[in-house]
Design a protein around this nucleic acid. Structure first.
Length: 250
DNA sequence: GCCCAGGTGACGG
DNA sequence: CCGTCACATGGG
């Protein structure tokens, strides 16, 4: 059992942040987190968070996954002090979000499914995939036809293309069918520890148009604009879920 | 029936 | 380089 300060670690917000699709909510304070073929239970207790792993497991696996060394106090301060009111609001609302460092293969697979799709259905698709294989599939499991009937739509073929070409260390994601600039940026940000990556989905484009005079000033957050992107995305996705039109709740 | 969703590839200008 | 369109699926 490991206990961490929860000021910048909020499992509920991370689970809803649209970067991971397989966290399972056990109850309001507890999440089952599958990754790397293992499972971690994360529980909030007041202003602390407990992980059901040993210190060596934290050091070898879960610490990196949770970006335990990331300077989230610094990121938060940068947003608050940016002079950009919308970003400051988003950062306050999103306090506790972290950028996970997830498995590269799983992230690429998941975000190919994410294209022109919505988060609840992305989760359903991945549940069906995991159910078929009894675990998250390996690249060698994903051969032509192996994903048939899982209602992945036209993305099924893209996944075969990914599986054919993927190997550990693979970085040519842009040449995989179904990986454009947005999906590639998600792979970089959520799996490759590239906090400078800045995925532009429909919500971010809308917010850039309506709140940032057309374009978010990434250059003002060198090396961590992607963290700001997550603040903006989470702020927007939660307000959408509440039924508000984007930006209107302000 | 429509529109939308953490978009992209193909095609025409 | 741009803009447009289809793409498979399901929810509102």
């Amino acid at each position: 059992m490991v206990i961490l300060n929860g000021e910048y670690l909020d499992p509920g917000k991370i689970a809803d942040s649209g970067q991971c699709f397989r966290w399972q909510r056990v109850d309001e304070h507890t999440y089952r987190v599958p990754a790397f073929g293992r499972e971690l239970i994360i529980a909030q207790r007041g202003d602390e968070v407990t992980l059901d792993c040993s210190q060596p497991e934290l050091d070898s696996t879960w610490g990196a996954y949770l970006d335990i060394d990331g300077d989230y106090d610094g990121y938060h301060r940068a947003a608050i002090g940016s002079g950009l009111p919308f970003l400051a609001d988003a950062a306050n609302f999103s306090k506790g979000i972290r950028i996970l460092r997830q498995d590269v293969w799983e992230t690429a697979f998941s975000f190919i499914i994410s294209q022109n799709n919505n988060i609840p259905r992305i989760k359903l698709c991945l549940e069906r995939v995991v159910e078929r294989f009894g675990r998250f599939p390996e690249p060698s499991d994903v051969v032509a036809g192996s994903l048939a009937g899982l209602k992945l739509g036209y993305r099924e073929g893209y996944l075969y293309d990914l599986a054919e070409r993927y190997a550990p260390g693979f970085t040519e994601f842009r040449s995989v069918k179904g990986v454009g600039p947005k999906v590639c940026a998600c792979i970089e940000l959520f799996a490759l520890a590239r906090k400078d990556a800045f995925p532009r989905d429909v919500w971010i484009k809308r917010v850039e148009r309506e709140q940032f005079d057309g374009r978010f000033p990434e250059e003002r957050f060198p090396g961590f604009a992607g963290v700001m992107q997550q603040y903006l995305f989470y702020y927007g996705s939660v307000s959408q879920k509440r039924g508000n039109k984007p930006c209107e709740q302000l």
